[in-house]
Design a protein around this nucleic acid. Structure first.
Lengths: 262, 262
DNA sequence: CGACCCCTTGAATTAGATCAAATAAAGTGG
DNA sequence: CCACTTTATTTGATCTAATTCAAGGGGTCG
């Protein structure tokens, strides 16, 4: 299969794009409208119910909880091709903000729901999509449950390795798997429920230990995958399952196959 | 509406029971088979894909991640009427165990999925059910993101107050809202990503502060709801939204209405 | 060049984990 | 029904890890 075609399709139709009938796809396209937001823009305030659903075309969103003291806790990141919005409206109390400049492919929610009602293939794709979101949310819960910052950071890297379906997030630098999300230390700290200082120290420690290499603050080359898995305090069978294609470096042969993904 | 009828219906048909056509309900009942497990039994091992889906009729399940060191991290609790199992199989790497003796109403998965395919009402109900699971998972992520044990414990109490749809979990003792899940300190500690000792100390501290009262280790009477909300470090608009019916004690008038729930 | 933002590093404090033990509750068998 | 075992909870003391407070580079942009 042609990678670049797949990529283009994912970008256009999101996670459920390539599972739809041509006819449904066409009607979906008719509904689509691309909206762009600048970095730090608020897409959804806490308590809002968006009038649309959609998926990310480019950029990174953060799903976060705003706490009383003006503090924020990130409970998820949305990368290109991830869905956002409440299919069947229910206030979540969460906020969505743009980490980078973003382009969102949006569908008017009532129209989208009507289309779902008459398109079993779309209904099925939406269900799969929500199930994927569910798995991701559980993964975040596991991540946040790590007791030490080191464990949470290692888990974060493993999740990003496994999860990202599109080039920019995970690539190979110097032939090694690399996590390169456009996420600054501040956001990273909020993701991991800690402070920028602790993040910084942990990154330095991992670097000194030879687990990772970080040319720029936004890039993490994975040097020792098995070491990272050990640091994440979870065995490879579980949450952070690494795609087979990434295992051929210092590959861990005992790692099982990854989920079929997309 | 008749509460006891509703309760019975929830117990029999789970979260999506009262949204189905009578015909669908009948076909669903034909598929149902109740399985019982004793306390501490493993319903699903990590890596398993259950041959059935279903919902809890009685008892409590814990959804957990098993870590390398034999440690476990609970990423969710399932109470009566909650769904479990992967509708469209995808290994989660999570385990499900019985906290108490449980009765599960199970449906053979292939048969259930076939029924979903031909029953739009069931498909819709399943989607809503999964969306509810998603909201719950995000709530857990928020819970686990709390920095201090006190914040996580307070958040846990608030979530249980809001979430439990059936009597045993939340009731009123001496006229006050009470969280009374059959969860021992050990499980509670795993839920909150901490140790039994820290739980114990936190409970004592909350008791001394007059936030809660605990006659038995399994019961927590809420004495000061607004204090708990403050301790959870999140304003009432968000995650822990308290049902209106529970607010008439030391009610917090500024709390908004809760979600329509079931 | 200075203002600003982001990342790193250092020192002090504190919360929580760990180790260890006492107390309380619940089941078991005589 | 009581002594006894087992399990659950509480309390104490120590030690480690992380937050907090504070300051020092290293960029970018007007």
């Amino acid at each position: 299969m042609n990678i670049s075609n797949d990529t283009a399709d994912l970008l256009r139709h999101g996670a459920f794009g390539n599972r739809l009938e041509p006819a449904t796809l066409k009607r979906l396209d008719a509904l689509a409208r691309v909206r762009e937001f600048r970095r730090s823009a608020t897409i959804m305030a806490p308590g809002d119910v968006l009038p649309f659903v959609g998926h990310v075309q480019s950029g990174i969103l953060r799903v976060e909880k705003l706490l009383s003291g003006g503090r924020q806790q990130i409970v998820g990141l949305l990368a290109p091709c991830d869905m956002f919005g409440h299919i069947h409206a229910a206030r979540s109390g969460l906020a969505i903000e743009a980490v980078t400049d973003v382009a969102l492919r949006c569908y008017d929610r009532p129209a989208f729901e009507s289309l779902v009602d008459v398109s079993p293939d779309l209904a099925h794709a939406v269900l799969l999509s929500v199930l994927d979101e569910l798995a991701t949310a559980r993964e975040w819960a596991v991540l946040l449950s790590g007791t030490t910052v080191a464990a949470r950071f290692a888990c974060y890297l493993l999740i990003q390795l496994r999860r990202s379906r599109l080039p920019p997030a995970v690539a190979r630098m110097h032939g090694r798997p690399t996590v390169a999300l456009p996420i600054g230390r501040s956001d990273l700290a909020h993701c991991l429920g800690t402070t920028v200082e602790s993040i910084s120290r942990t990154v330095q420690r991992f670097t000194r230990s030879g687990l990772i290499r970080s040319d720029t603050p936004l890039q993490f080359e994975i040097l020792d995958l098995s070491g990272l898995i050990a640091a994440a305090d979870c065995d490879g069978r579980d949450c952070p399952v690494i795609p087979a294609e990434l295992q051929n470096n210092r590959g861990e042969p005992e790692l099982e196959e990854c989920l079929p993904a997309a």
